[in-house]
């Protein structure tokens, strides 16, 4: 019985134990490795950004190189405007589709919708930018906040659909049954019982989608473009926070870099706070509904 001897060989056992320890250590180390750039980015951006944050940053227009002070108020307002337009377009579509996929999932068509939503979420954002350019900018012959909002809206759709679907599926079927058994119609059951029960999770999920959209740069480069001043309307070129950061970051001027760091810090803070809220709320949600 050679096999047993090999297995019982203490050397062999020792080797297995060493492999065990090495691999487990590697696993822990890789966890740390992934954290290092994260912490680095968070701290570096905070340190570099917070020093140039002041009231002017939020309230003043950009100043030309060489003049001290100034801010990126127009970019912040522009971002709010573009993201607002995007939300107005993307959230209803995403929400309703999520309801369809979750509540009427019996149908074959729901699976197609799910697949296509996955496809949409995999399309690089720059391509959505090209699309919005072709559909809006090319037709109206000028860059506009509207085109940027359209692009961001499309980008938000898959996230919102997915989150709505998942949150609605967390609502136990017994609640739907209870409501239907009272003679409440299906649509009222869905909107006033199911959606309301899942509303915490859905709202935070949407905040997350909005935060992501707020950080998108690529699709805005040639849709909403940029503007050094206040934009006149949603039909004209509009500055946005990420594009402004990009333009400042690739410029050769140190003072603009400072502004860019401050902008980056604002973006990260936004993402961080929203993720934290999402985390807290979904945690409560789970413990309550189970």
């Amino acid at each position: 019985m050679e096999a047993y001897e090999i297995l019982a060989n203490p050397k062999n056992l020792k080797r297995r134990k060493i492999i065990n320890i090495v691999m487990l250590t590697l696993s822990v180390v890789s966890g740390l490795v992934a954290i290092i750039p994260l912490i680095y980015i968070l701290f570096y951006t905070t340190a570099a950004g917070i020093s140039s944050l002041n009231l002017d940053f939020f309230t003043q227009l950009p100043k030309p190189v060489g003049e001290p002070g100034g801010g990126i108020a127009n970019a912040i307002v522009g971002s709010v405007e573009i993201v607002g337009l995007g939300s107005a377009f993307g959230i209803p579509i995403g929400l309703m589709s999520g309801i369809y996929v979750s509540e009427f999932s019996k149908s074959f068509f729901a699976n197609i919708v799910k697949f296509v939503t996955d496809v949409l979420s995999g399309i690089p954002s720059i391509i959505i930018g090209i699309f919005a350019y072709g559909v809006i900018v090319l037709q109206t012959k000028h860059f506009s906040a509207l085109a940027g909002g359209f692009a961001l809206g499309i980008l938000m759709i898959p996230t919102v659909t997915r989150i709505t679907e998942e949150m609605l599926k967390l609502v136990p079927i017994s609640l739907r049954e209870a409501s239907l058994a009272l003679g409440i119609s299906r649509w009222k059951t869905t909107l006033k019982i199911v959606l309301r029960t899942a509303s915490g999770g859905i709202i935070t999920g949407m905040l997350l989608a909005i935060a992501r959209a707020a950080g998108e740069t690529a699709p805005l480069l040639f849709t909403s473009f940029g503007n050094s001043f206040w934009s006149e309307s949603i039909d004209s070129p509009t500055a946005s926070l990420p594009v402004q950061i990009f333009n400042y970051a690739i410029s050769p001027y140190a003072e603009w870099h400072q502004k860019a760091w401050a902008g980056a810090f604002v973006l990260i803070a936004l993402v961080f706070i929203i993720s934290l809220i999402v985390r807290l709320i979904t945690k409560n949600k789970f413990s309550q509904s189970v």
Binding site: A34, P37, L38, Y40, I41, L42, Y44, T45, L208, A211, R212, A214, G215, E216, T217, A218, P242, I245, F246, A249, A260, W261, A264, L267, I268, V271, F272, S275, R279
Partner: peptide, 15 residues
Amino acid sequence: IEILAAIPSIVFGFW
């Protein structure tokens, strides 16, 4: 790691 996933790519590029 969730946060890492949510940081805008412009910030990564800048960094």
